[in-house]
Design a protein around this nucleic acid. Structure first.
Length: 276
DNA sequence: TATTCATTTCCTGCTT
DNA sequence: GAAGCAGGAAATGAAT
C-alpha cells in the first residue's frame, strides 16, 4: 500500500476533494459510454438532455434527499432518457411510481422550468403549467452549485411518520429512520445490481434468489462510490472494509472462500425481486 | 458541547 | 508476490 506522506496519516485528507479532478475516469475509459456511469452529472444538464443513467441518478437523488426507501421508486419503470421523461404526464408518473409519482413529477417540472430543486420543490407539483416546448440550453452551469443537494424538506404526499402512524398500515413508501448522509454503501451497491442496464459489468448477481453477488470491476465500483461521496481517493480496499462492517449488522453475510463475493443479509432491504 | 452513526483510513496477519 | 479478506484501532464529519 502506498501511504500519503510516506506512511504517516495525512491530517488533511479529503480537504481538497472538491477541487480535485476525478482521476478514475481515465482508468475506466471503457465504461465511459453515453448513458453509462461516466457521463456528466444530471444536475449539470437540463432534464431534456439526460441520458438513461442521469435519469437514474436523479431518481437516486430524490430518494436521498427525501429520505425514502429505494422501494418507493421502481427504477425499472423509468428506463427512459430525459426526453422521454419530460414527455411523461403526472398520471404516467403516478402510474409508474405510485405515491412518489407526484413528487417525481413536481421535481422534474421544477428542474425543467426553474432550474432548482430547493425546499419549495413539491408545491410546484400542484401548480405546474405544462409547456409543450422549450429551448433551454443543455448545460446549466448554475446547477453546479450543489448547495441545494440533500435538502429533504418538501410538503409532498409522503407523510411524516407521525401522520402515518394514525392512518394506513405500513405502506411501501416511508421515510428512513436514520440516513442523514444519503445513500448507504450497501444501498448504492444494491441499486447498481437492480439496474443492470446502468451497470456496465461492474457487479453481477451470482445467486439472485439468495442475494449473492460478485464484484467484476472492484476498483471501478470503488471509484464510483468515491465519486458519489466526493472522495477521489476511494479504493476497493477501503470500500471492502466498509462492506465488512455490514457483517456485524446483518446487512451482509460472509461468503467463505470466494473472492469479491458478498451476500445480502436479513437486514438488507429492497434487493429481492418480490419486494418491489 | 457531547454523542452517535456510518463510514474512511491505516494497519497486521492470513489466504488464495 | 500480488490481490483479496478479516478485523482492530483511530479518525472523520454530519446529524442529533
Amino acid at each position: 500500500m502506498i501511504l500519503e506522506g510516506g506512511g504517516v496519516m495525512n491530517p488533511n485528507h479529503g480537504s481538497n476533494l472538491l477541487q480535485q479532478q476525478p482521476a478514475w475516469t481515465d482508468g475506466y475509459a471503457a465504461c465511459n459510454v453515453p448513458g453509462g456511469f461516466f457521463g456528466s452529472q444530471w444536475h449539470e444538464t437540463h432534464p431534456q438532455y439526460w441520458s438513461k443513467y442521469q435519469v437514474w441518478e436523479w431518481l437516486q437523488h430524490l430518494l436521498d434527499t427525501n429520505q425514502l426507501d429505494a422501494s418507493c421508486i421502481p427504477f425499472q419503470e423509468f428506463d427512459v432518457d430525459g426526453e422521454h421523461l419530460c414527455g411523461m404526464s403526472l398520471q404516467e408518473f403516478s402510474r409508474a411510481a405510485g405515491a412518489a409519482g407526484p413528487l417525481l413529477y413536481g421535481s422534474l417540472q421544477n428542474l425543467r422550468w426553474s432550474g432548482q430543486c430547493g425546499s419549495d420543490l413539491f408545491p410546484a407539483t400542484h401548480n405546474v403549467i405544462v409547456k409543450t416546448e422549450q429551448t433551454d440550453p443543455p448545460v446549466m452551469n448554475t446547477w453546479k452549485d450543489e448547495s441545494y443537494l440533500y435538502d429533504s424538506s418538501y410538503g409532498g404526499t409522503v407523510e411524516s411518520p407521525e401522520v402515518k402512524k394514525e392512518q394506513d398500515p405500513p405502506a411501501k413508501c416511508h421515510p428512513k429512520k436514520h440516513n442523514p448522509r444519503g445513500t448507504h454503501l450497501w444501498e448504492f451497491i444494491r441499486d447498481i445490481l437492480l439496474n443492470p442496464d446502468k451497470n456496465p459489468g461492474l457487479i453481477k448477481w451470482e445467486d439472485r434468489a439468495e442475494g449473492v453477488f460478485r464484484f467484476l470491476k472492484s476498483e471501478a465500483v470503488a471509484q464510483l462510490w468515491g465519486r458519489k461521496k466526493n472522495n477521489s481517493s476511494m479504493t476497493y480496499e477501503k470500500l471492502s472494509r466498509a462492506m465488512r462492517y455490514y457483517y456485524k449488522r446483518d446487512i451482509l453475510e460472509r461468503v467463505d472462500g470466494r473472492r469479491l463475493v458478498y451476500k445480502f443479509g436479513k437486514n438488507a432491504r429492497g434487493w429481492r425481486e418480490d419486494e418491489n
